[in-house]
Simulated assay, not measured.
Amino acid sequence: MSVKHLSTGSKDVPIEPGKIRLYSMRFCPYAQRVHLVLFAKNIPHDIVNINLKNKPEWYLEKFPLGKVPAVIVEGEYLYESLIISDFLDEKYPKRPLYPKDPVKKAKDRLLIESFSKVISLLYKCYLSPTMDFQLLLPVFNEMDAFEKEMATRGTPFFSGDKPGMVDYMIWPWCERLETVRILGGDQFRIPKDRFQRLREWCKAMIEDEAVKKHFLTPEEHAKYLQSHRAGTPDFDNIL
């Protein structure tokens, strides 16, 4: 296991027998998805963090695209957060994260896919040279659908009485929502009366054991984003 992010000139860490190897970056929301699945399903794993600005040569040999998350499972190399998460749920059936009903499972996958619109719009906010509140309005418009979906489902989590795949796949960006306010000021505060159900969902998610194991405060996320916006991402600032 490597806590600090390995960069060029480093050597890979030997894989621990009987464990999945997860290559990650501590502030990557896509990698967080896989962390949450591994924690929720209690799958033995070890973690090697990768410096995404100065990627190790050996990492690019294993994964030429240089992305995280990536995993090695029984000699097989996989990448892309949704593919890895679905694979882990199928390979380790204990504590299933999808519904058994095929239609409900398909609808959950569609909901996860639709959240990609929120992700794209949030990145425009985070990476904009000048914080503009107008950039946040489309994010709220897309999130309205998730507020309505919570009302339709009528359960504490999107997946029912406990978090499932939908919850874990969208949580990383919800964990980071408050960073917009920290970076841009109080005018970027999320409207309280517009997303009441999602606020209750967020409170419940923070108490989930899998989420607790990887949770960072909005201030910690903002500190990393500030370094990223400055062109010098500080991957190890909390390690």
Rank of each mutant, 00 (worst) to 15 (best):
K67T: 07
N54Q: 11
I72H: 03
A70V: 02
P64D: 06
A40Y: 06
L60V: 13
L52T: 10
A70G: 15
Y59R: 07
E61Y: 08
A40C: 06
D46W: 06
L65E: 10
N49A: 11
D46E: 15
V68P: 00
N49F: 10
G66S: 12
I43F: 04
K67H: 06
N49K: 02
F63W: 05
W58C: 12
P44S: 05
K41L: 09
K41E: 11
A70M: 04
A70E: 03
L52A: 07
Y59T: 08
P69H: 04
P56D: 14
P64W: 10
E57Y: 08
D46Y: 13
P64V: 05
K55F: 05
P69M: 05
K41T: 13
P44E: 08
L60H: 04
W58R: 08
L52N: 06
I50A: 13
P56M: 09
K62V: 12
F63A: 00
I43E: 02
H45I: 01
N42W: 00
F63N: 03
L60A: 06
K53Y: 04
N51E: 10
V48P: 00
I50Q: 07
K67G: 02
W58H: 09
I43S: 02
P56A: 11
E61T: 15
P69N: 13
K55I: 02
L60D: 10
K67Y: 05
H45E: 00
K67P: 01
N51K: 04
K41Q: 13
W58M: 10
I72K: 03
I50C: 13
P56G: 13
I47A: 13
I43M: 01
L65T: 14
P44D: 07
V71T: 06
V71Q: 01
P69V: 05
E61W: 07
G66Q: 09
F63R: 00
F63V: 01
P69D: 07
N51L: 12
K41I: 08
L65P: 13
K53Q: 12
P56E: 11
V71M: 00
N49I: 04
K55Y: 02
N42Q: 07
V71P: 05
D46N: 15
H45T: 02
K41Y: 14
L65D: 11
E61H: 12
I43C: 03
